Amino acid sequence: MKVICQIYRSTRDSGMYLYCKKEDGLSKVPEALMQRFGRPEPAMVLALDEQRRLAHADIQKVLQALAEPGYYLQMPPAETLEAEAAAVREHNAKLS
């Protein structure tokens, strides 16, 4: 099964991406998630199938999510989240 997938980058969180079927666009993404995601920026279009390798996502999980519920949310790697949290803690400590 080949799926043409539009990938969107979050303007709010670096490393957060939404994968959607190109024909559906963002229509199946819940409004609450869109609020959290921020303004979506088109990042790339890929033809996905079971042989495709993705850098930060399991292709089987992506294809399953695209089938139902119609989108896949890729969160930033844990190292990125920890680095951002450390930077916030450091910034807050300087303000104290």
Rank of each mutant, 00 (worst) to 15 (best):
A57K: 02
C5E: 03
L54F: 04
Q74K: 09
E41P: 02
G15C: 04
H91Q: 15
A87R: 12
S27W: 03
E41L: 15
G70I: 04
K94D: 14
L54R: 00
F37G: 09
Y71W: 08
T80D: 14
S96P: 04
C20E: 06
A43S: 11
Y72Q: 02
D58E: 11
N92V: 05
S96V: 15
T80N: 09
L48N: 15
K22P: 06
R12P: 04
A85H: 10
D58N: 12
P69K: 00
A93Y: 08
D24A: 09
A86Y: 05
A87S: 14
M75L: 15
G38W: 04
P40W: 00
L81I: 13
I7L: 05
K21I: 06
K2D: 06
A87P: 00
R36K: 07
Q6S: 14
H56M: 13
R12A: 12
L18Y: 09
A86I: 05
A65N: 14
K61F: 02
E90P: 07
V3N: 11
A57I: 03
A86N: 10
C5H: 02
K21Q: 14
L66V: 13
S10F: 07
D13I: 09
M16S: 10
Y17T: 10
L48Y: 15
E31D: 13
L54T: 04
A93W: 07
E41N: 08
L95H: 03
I59E: 02
P42F: 05
V88F: 10
Y72V: 01
A55G: 04
M34Y: 02
S10E: 12
L95D: 10
Y19I: 04
K22H: 06
G25L: 03
V62C: 01
V45H: 03
K21N: 13
P40D: 06
Q35A: 05
